[in-house]
Design a binder for these strands. Structure first.
Lengths: 197, 197
DNA sequence: CAGCTTCCATACGGCAGAGTATGGGGTTAC
DNA sequence: GTAACCCCATACTCTGCCGTATGGAAGCTG
């Protein structure tokens, strides 16, 4: 039982680091530079510390990755609850999901980074579970809208595909960013095309 | 003028290599392992040759990447002509575009790999041009369908987003592969939802 | 204060890949 | 035949990173 105090520093203070700090920093590095750029020494430099610290908390680089991924999966599960599990009419829940696409939050960027390495045996299963879980929630909401289960599943796939694709286009800066009026128009277009049957 | 003979071997014969061979092999390696895995020595091993050959044809690794990207962009431009530039009614052209999503051809996998590194100054501009060109063609076809320019552009964005997202889900093996009957049903669903207004 | 634990710094060995230098086999030109 | 050129093999240095070994500072414990 290494440590469980509530450190979670952003590297501003000089308290001792916890495994959680390393995992969170790893996730941020993944979001920035991609999974393949997750290295011990670069991460240590980012935290302004030496790798002597790292190898005290973790056996090696692989263990850090799987721990970070597990952490990310749990975070995403929480996000799902508050976005699609809310006590709202289904159309509103779906609209909220579409809106959340814009929040260029860390989770989205990590998802994109993980999408780039679906073959990795450490990443693939996690990514698959997260994606399936999201689509499952979408399909349930769509079904509440009155569609047949099969049609609802197809619609959920299409909705989710457009979500992922939008993330990509957003990364390429080829699509209006949230805040701009064109973005709201586009969101309205999506809702009208795919939700308001 | 190094060489321009029509070699383009798949490394089966033992003729001398051309820059084109290296570029094509680089593209295949990118499609397999991602851009960050594009290295001189791994590529040389893949071609069953030493890097002494490489550094005769190319100044370095960067030049190989930009040459390969330029080559890929030209290939994609050709693909666009035959798919969306054909002499067909617009609905049929769009349907053909949706169908082409399935052909897990090399170009699609390369596109996915490049999507993972949109920040790279060597990749970003190429990726942006290719994406913008594709969406432009899509929007033109949609506009021929009778939509207003603004609405056509939004519809084209949505169509293309769903295309990219489908590629991602396909890479995660979370979506019916082409050939399966469910795939045709899904394609029908997409066409009905986004094309047949 | 002595001793132990916790957390990190420093120094080292090892490996993989980039780029360079140089030589050598094969073909072509004359 | 020989001289020149094209293409590639080999051997080297250099850099970045992984993982390990070891020492040391800070805090708690008795």
């Amino acid at each position: 039982m290494k440590n469980s105090n509530t450190s979670s520093r952003a590297n501003g203070d000089r308290g001792t680091l916890t495994p959680t700090d390393w995992e969170q920093a790893a996730l941020e590095l993944i979001a920035d530079k991609g999974v393949s750029s997750l290295g011990v020494e670069p991460l240590a430099r980012r935290l302004d510390i030496t790798k002597g610290s790292f190898y005290w908390h973790f056996p090696g680089r692989n263990e850090l990755l799987v721990a970070a991924l597990e952490r990310w999966e749990n975070q995403d599960r929480q996000h799902l609850k508050v976005s699609l599990g809310a006590d709202m009419p289904p159309a509103q829940r779906l609209a909220q999901f579409v809106w959340r696409t814009s929040q260029q939050t860390l989770t989205h960027r990590i998802y994109l980074a993980l999408c780039a390495a679906p073959e990795d045996p450490r990443i693939g299963p996690v990514l698959k579970r997260v994606t399936a879980r999201r689509i499952q929630h979408l399909a349930a909401a769509v079904e509440e809208l009155g569609l047949e289960p099969a049609a609802a599943r197809q619609r959920a796939n299409l909705l989710y595909s457009s979500y992922v694709g939008y993330l990509q286009l957003q990364a390429q800066e080829l699509v209006p960013n949230p805040g701009a009026p064109e973005f709201e128009q586009y969101v309205g277009h999506v809702i009208q095309s795919l939700i308001e049957v």
